[in-house]
Design a protein around this nucleic acid. Structure first.
Lengths: 343, 343
DNA sequence: CTGAAAGCGCTTACAG
DNA sequence: CTGAAAGCGCTTACAG
């Protein structure tokens, strides 16, 4: 046989019409069982596979989801935040489970990505993942809305943001870890990570942290908040910046584990003892966090659950079911880097 | 306008035929420049995107590559070997660079994956990635060959394997790290990892290790080789097994970093000093390896290069260029876990 | 340089 | 339960 077999080849061999073949292969109840089995057998013999381009074109859907992963424009090409890598893994798995294919693409926030995947029928919907300045982001989100693109976004699950978001309860996470630090006797808690509308997730973590301080009758010191992006290097730089301020502090809550790793490196180099002199906390619970020394106290975002919720929500949206922005619980993971209660 | 715009809508507005629109949009030199610009402008206004299903169906190609990632059936669902995650990242990036889309899918080696992606025209070619028993694998590889599927595989770049493989020079890597251990005065070097035709990559590392021993006039002790799969847990178990043998050894060369991490954990729990009493070496240079204590001496596989070579080779194959199995150099990364020279 | 027409391989009303 | 036919939205010979 030359080239790939088509449904007509099968029809010919089976002595039925091509329509019947199409029905049989999709296990339509309309087809006589005997005929169906025969067709399945011949299909197998001929090594026949449905041409997805043809079936998608005809049925106007693709059975495919596109995952767009944004990266900090500054980040090294080879280095992807392990947290997103975990998400990628769990999203891939969730798609497989639901029988969807997954197209993966890395993007710069500045790229002209917002119209591509769904519009050209390569995907039925889009998952948006990644950090970046939210203010750059929002405009494109609004365009997606306008085009009625099916999409869900991993991020801050705030009211007022366009579209559907799935995110961790960042406020709660920030609150709990700060509360934990306070319980351990820390009073001057610095925050390293963006705290503004450009990074709403980090901002929520910061707000949660401030709320915990206030609840304990402590006043957040705005001088102890340092903006930074999510890389080890920038965490390192931010820690040096913090030390240079000569403001007293006895703990640092880092907006991500990657930042915390850089911070720990900087403190060690300066001879600051962790956690005796300064406690360090992270956020994300990336696999690395339990291997660095000291092991990192952090907040877990359940990537497995997150991937499933993202995929399920998007698929529901594709099927016009009603979906809503969802906040996933944050979970405090206590290890060594914040020490234990001072007696 | 109801629904998405088609090339006919543009043709209508531009006052030309649909064929001309199609040509103009693909920047065919056949089209008058003025007409082309007009068409591009209208396309933009109407937010038109070429329907990929239609164009793929017609032109019989997809501009898409499928990445199939196999996992150890025993591995925890949530845990993917970080080495493969890095590969996934670099492959994604390489695809973006070459203008190809990437479909990602996780598979069990036992699944009926071997016929799916290319045959149903979802992808022009397949990249195979992952560990697993090679003997299970080979049969399906042969089927791919028979179907004339375009594929490349990450793995042992051995003669005699079907198809095209891209892989690290595992023999060289095993040789160099063992040679390094010998230079440091180690004489009884254990190997943890499969050494047989089921895991040809590990086997090559083992062979390289044995070659280094022999070159130094030492005899490899087969009792010091323990089969295991690539997870932290199985590395842990294998180390305990090795200790129980009561065979003397002063170094362990682990077939992967993940195994090494488990081994280190086991040795520490048993009070064995690393590297004073036993040196531990890994393979892969995963990001974790520089963060565990002691930091891990290991062999780097250049994932960035590997991803590029895999993608470029596959694309060449798709375009019927001649391609060949390629071996990438291994690079020794010296850290703390093997110690320094004994005086 | 442009247009009319065929056709990629399916799915799905429609008719029986 | 089955078949003949239309049509998804393109690309690409073919003719001019």
């Amino acid at each position: 046989m030359k080239g790939k077999a088509t449904s007509f080849d099968i029809a010919h061999q089976a002595g039925v019409s091509q329509s019947t073949v199409s029905r049989a292969l999709r296990n339509s109840p309309l087809v006589n069982e005997e005929t169906r089995e025969k067709i399945h057998r011949i299909a197998k013999e001929l090594n026949y596979k449905v041409d997805k381009n043809a079936s998608n074109l005809r049925s106007q859907q693709s059975g495919t989801i596109a995952l767009l992963l944004f990266q900090d424009p500054t980040s090294d090409d080879s280095q992807i935040n392990p947290f997103f890598l975990s998400m990628l893994g769990s999203i891939t798995r969730a798609c497989t489970q639901r029988g969807y294919d997954l197209l993966v693409s890395f993007q710069q926030l500045s790229d002209d990505w917002h119209a591509d995947y769904e519009d050209c029928h390569k995907a039925d919907g889009i998952i948006l993942l990644g950090y970046g300045d939210y203010t750059d982001y929002e405009e494109k989100l609004l365009q997606l809305e306008e085009q009625k693109t099916n999409y869900v976004r991993w991020g801050a699950a705030n009211e007022g943001h366009p579209g559907i978001s799935i995110g961790c309860d960042n406020f709660q996470g920030g609150f709990e870890i700060t509360d934990h630090l306070i319980q351990l006797g820390r009073k001057n808690i610095a925050f390293i990570g963006g705290a503004g509308i450009g990074s709403p997730e980090f901002f929520d973590r910061y707000k949660g942290s401030c709320a915990a301080l206030e609840k304990a009758g402590l006043k957040p010191n705005p001088k102890l908040q340092i903006d930074t992006i999510t890389t080890e290097q920038s965490g390192y730089a931010a820690a040096l910046q913090l030390l240079a301020l000569k403001q007293p502090f006895d703990a640092i809550f880092c907006a991500s584990d990657l930042i915390a790793i850089g911070v720990i490196k900087a403190l060690r180099e300066r001879g600051v003892k962790i956690p005796e002199e300064v406690a360090v906390a992270g956020y994300d619970n990336i696999p690395l966090s339990e291997f660095i020394r000291p092991t990192l106290t952090t907040v877990q975002q359940d990537t497995k659950l997150a991937g499933e919720v993202l995929v399920n929500t998007l698929i529901d949206k594709i099927h016009d079911k009603s979906v809503k922005t969802t906040m996933l619980p944050a979970k405090l993971i206590i290890r060594e880097s914040c020490g234990v209660a001072k007696k």
